[in-house]
Simulated scan of single mutants.
Amino acid sequence: MDIILATHCEIPALAFRDWRKFGDASGYVASLDVRTDWIAAERDFYFEVEPLQKFIDALEAIDRTLVGTARLKPLWEEPFVEISGNGRGEILVSGLMIENGHRTQQVRFAFETDQTCLAPLIASLKAAA
Rank of each mutant, 00 (worst) to 15 (best):
T69P: 13
I39W: 12
V34P: 05
L125K: 04
E78Y: 14
V81I: 08
P74L: 01
N100E: 11
M1Q: 13
A40N: 10
N86P: 09
K54T: 03
D18A: 04
E82G: 15
I11K: 08
A119P: 12
P51W: 15
T65K: 04
T65S: 13
G85W: 14
P74H: 03
P79A: 05
Q105Y: 13
A61C: 06
P74V: 09
G89A: 01
E99N: 06
D57I: 01
H8L: 07
E112F: 09
A13H: 14
P74E: 04
A40D: 12
Y28W: 09
T104G: 14
F80M: 01
G23E: 10
L75P: 03
N86W: 11
P12M: 07
A58L: 07
L66T: 10
G85H: 14
R43D: 15
T7A: 05
L59D: 05
F80T: 01
T65G: 03
T36M: 09
K126R: 15
I62D: 03
A15R: 07
C117I: 00
T104N: 15
P120D: 11
I56H: 05
L59A: 02
A123Y: 13
E99W: 13
I4K: 06
F55L: 00
T65R: 08
E60R: 08
I4P: 11
M97A: 03
Y46I: 05
A123P: 08
L72Q: 05
D57T: 04
D114Q: 14
H102Y: 12
I3P: 11
A128V: 04
A13I: 00
I122T: 03
S124N: 11
A70H: 12
P120T: 08
R20W: 07
